[in-house]
Design a protein around this nucleic acid. Sequence first.
DNA 1: CGAATACTTGAGTGGGGTCAACGCAAGTGG
DNA 2: CCACTTGCGTTGACCCCACTCAAGTATTCG
Lengths: 243, 243
Amino acid sequence: MSELDPLIRRLQSIARLTDAQREVLSKVPFRRALLQPEQHAVSEGERPTHCCLQLSGLMFRHKITSSGGRQILAFHIPGDIPDLQSLHLETMDHSLAAVVATEVALIRHEDIEELVDRSPGIGSMLWRESLIDAAVFRAWIVAMGQLDSSGRLAHLLCEMFTRMAAVGLTEGRSCNLPLTQVELADALGVSAVHVNRTLQDLRRSKLIQFEGGRLTILDWAALVHLADFNPQYLQLRTPPVAL
Amino acid sequence: MSELDPLIRRLQSIARLTDAQREVLSKVPFRRALLQPEQHAVSEGERPTHCCLQLSGLMFRHKITSSGGRQILAFHIPGDIPDLQSLHLETMDHSLAAVVATEVALIRHEDIEELVDRSPGIGSMLWRESLIDAAVFRAWIVAMGQLDSSGRLAHLLCEMFTRMAAVGLTEGRSCNLPLTQVELADALGVSAVHVNRTLQDLRRSKLIQFEGGRLTILDWAALVHLADFNPQYLQLRTPPVAL
DNA sequence: CGAATACTTGAGTGGGGTCAACGCAAGTGG
DNA sequence: CCACTTGCGTTGACCCCACTCAAGTATTCG
């Protein structure tokens, strides 16, 4: 088991990997880095020369508007490469930062290009990964445009739980999700006060438990219904969660 | 000038093309098709074997929620390949349809794969194109989460105008944009009634003119400000519009 | 034991929603 | 050529989800 095991697990969740490909992947050169909470990995406007492969913790991508608002665009878990796009888009249109202390493997663009040249199958997988990233954005747009705050919140929780389950980061019906209400608010496009009340609704209705950075699903079916959640967009190889 | 000229123009707006690459591109085999207004090119759940290269008209991608709402995810103009993602994501998570009568070139996945194998530079461009697609989704998320309805509408208009300008589809400060208020509403996540009032605001403030399917920008600076619009996310090679 | 940081709760407000009617042009067909 | 339909845009009345402001209450931590 290599140090890049989280990546292998992630790719295996969306594609079939041969032993040879696993071998090649585990030999990609990288540099470890530890990010503190709130610390940026890359910021809007920068022109990165590396990609970040997340090894632990929780990260988020966000953008600050000119009026000072913060919109969170995505949350990331171990195995993700949140800034894979920088491989072909020179300039970052948003920032990437850690929610809690997070380890990343920094991989040079040149090394990824070489990997892709040498092993086109892995290239397709990475392309696929970036297309799934886009599919997640689409799901967020649908949630923001069509659902009320409880639906949006439910959708986010369904998505995070499903993604974590796909790479083995859940235990039963629970997973770590150390997000504050302010962070949830900035992701959902509602105020923090309203997230608070919405969370209370979900707790009162016995759909979830959420405290101390840990999420427990109490009623998956009801949550899925509220969120109009269909995991198909995550394009997982093995049918996801059935709690 | 080949029949696939719109694609060449589009790729040239985001990357440098060699004569050889232009040559290769103009020889990709395809089948023409004409879509009527409202007609679907591909629908959610399908597993397409072709990609659609748009040659004329106006298209949109959308998703219907279980409660019957329609969220429009993107609008597309000639030169776009709105379902490029289907190359690496088997199952469509949303639908693609025509707003008005639209010509498309249907290109088989195998032929694209072969093109990419033979000319890796073009492969990178297509990957880049799909990453820009994702960047547009991010911009929509920011608009939906952080802007009020006039800001969102202004953002959409800025984006469409900038994209059309980049491929030579504007005349001065005008362009064709045959969208109904209902379509705008479903894209912005607000009601059609409210789009009507918001459009009136923008007209009254002399920012735009919008009638008969034609958009004219009267005050670009004000529109950009209202939308908090920064075209950087479109990753265009040549700096866009300065009206 | 202050001083953060996160979470709660209440009161008042407003953006945008819904419902419903009406205007107006462009077909279409008798 | 007029009656009818159909699609799109417009307007008004009323309402509610979610926002802001503001003042709490835990917890955690130097």
